[in-house]
């Protein structure tokens, strides 16, 4: 889920920027530094929306760098265990399928795909129900429940997820048929 929150950060600024546009420089450096980063606590920082307050700088001895405490508002994306969200399928194989919800990669193992769905290999690998009414393939939209979240060294959150409970799942099916390539998604 996305959140709008206030965060704080200590920014180090090189002495060469001390001058008339110090504040602007500090803001652009903040945006450059934090946007796109990911932490276990807050998740992905998607966008900085506003800089609230820039505190008094402190000169560090020896280097000449100045540290400014900066308070800013930003949009973050953080998946939670148990959360139900929608995602777009990116890759299907016999182990399960991968999906993407914004910046987050999600893997759904075939153990968590209902038993009545069979894997079909071929040009466009997919999972299909026995009556063929529902297909999970690349670019399908699925609704799933997060069952675990991991932040790895490459700073990409991997979430293992199961398709959301039976009741939601029926609904997943309904939406699933709307493949984005074929028809506009109902909104």
């Amino acid at each position: 889920m996305f959140f709008h929150m206030v965060l704080e950060r200590n920014m180090q600024l090189h002495p060469r920027y001390f001058g008339p546009h110090l504040q602007e420089k500090l803001k652009s450096k903040l945006v450059k530094d934090v946007e796109g980063t990911c932490s276990g606590k807050h998740g992905f920082v998607v966008a900085v929306t506003k800089v609230d307050n820039i505190g008094k700088g402190l000169i560090r001895e020896g280097t000449g760098f100045v540290t400014f405490p900066v308070k800013y508002q930003c949009v973050v994306f953080r998946p939670f265990r148990g959360e139900i969200l929608e995602a777009v399928v990116t890759l299907v194989n016999k182990m399960g399928f991968f999906a993407e919800a914004g910046p987050v990669n999600i893997f759904v193992s075939n153990h968590l795909i209902p038993d009545d769905m069979e894997f079909q290999s071929g040009d466009a690998p997919n999972y299909t129900t026995s009556d063929g009414s529902v297909k999970i393939q690349k670019d399908s939209e699925v609704r799933l429940k997060i069952i675990g979240v991991r932040v790895d060294a490459a700073e990409i959150v991997n979430s293992d997820a199961g398709l959301a409970g039976k009741k939601c799942f029926d609904h997943t099916f309904a939406r699933n048929e709307h493949n984005l390539d074929n028809c506009p998604v109902e909104k």
Binding site: E35, F77, E100, G102, E141
Partner: peptide, 13 residues
């Protein structure tokens, strides 16, 4: 960033 791009696509969809 890529994160921004992906998020924008996602929320629009």
């Amino acid at each position: 960033s890529q994160v921004f791009e992906k998020s924008l696509q996602y929320v629009k969809r």
